[in-house]
Amino acid sequence: MSDTTAHKFRSARDEAPLARYALIAFAVIGVGVLVAAPLLAVFVEALADGAAAAVASLGNRDAASAIKLTLLIAAIAVPLNALFGVAAAWFITKFDFRGKAFLITLIDLPFSVSPVVAGLCIVLMFGTNSLVGGWLVASGYPVVFALPGIVLATMFVTFPFVARELIPVMVEQGRAEEEAALTLGASGFRVFWTVTLPNIRWALLYGVLLSNARAMGEFGAVAVVSGKIRGETATMPITIEMLYNEYLSVAAFSMAAVLTLLALVTLMLKTALEVRHADQLAANHRH
């Protein structure tokens, strides 16, 4: 830059103003094109024939059944994963044992497995021609192409979320508070309820939030195990695919808009948690 006055006020940690503006513009345009534009496209396409058509497309029995099924799956899978996350975090952070790193790797495994492969694993384990699956079908409890299979697939892909949020927070908080409560004669359950839980509640909520968003939106794993039976095993994302492939664009995008609104609410709650309870969230403890 030619003007020397600008130099005088620039700290050693700043880029030249021109570079700064260029980088900001690059970031804003990049996120705008890559992220904001698809978001906008969902609503534009849903409202292509007007708001009334969009709402009407959600009013039929198949759509209602898909919404109910997705809510039911989340209502089963998310609490179970929260239970697992709390138990795993307690086991890993309150006790010292061999193979801890290996256990954490195993818990993280679903993140590096394709959702389609996850669904495939469940089909191979519980499908009609597997040992376990054949017996279950014979006893009248089919897993694949039925609710249990979809719940299992959903749990598989969301498995690490809660544990991953809780473990760093609980490592940081240590065991001293719990030990103090124990020496004062509190029962194990009371220690967890009155000492540990208040310390981890925001991290727990954060993990549940992420887990829920993924559970309601999971497509690949569910597509493999659901069998896509309309009105029975078609979740919201599966219904979106079916409608889209039938060229029912408004109906597909209207249902997509419902899930998009859910995603936006999730993001807002997540951001609010990050702003208000930053000190109690794992995301801010990663170094």
């Binding site: 006790f95 495994l109 679903p110 694993c121 124990l182």
Partner: peptide, 29 residues
């Protein structure tokens, strides 16, 4: 294998962790 610890809930937390991990992730893989 596991250090002695005054912390409660070893059996419960280990049981839930290993059972669910096996059922949901390890056995299918």
């Amino acid at each position: 294998l596991i250090h002695r610890s005054p912390m409660p809930g070893l059996g419960l937390s280990m049981g839930i962790t290993l059972t669910m991990l096996s059922l949901v992730v390890l056995l299918p893989i």
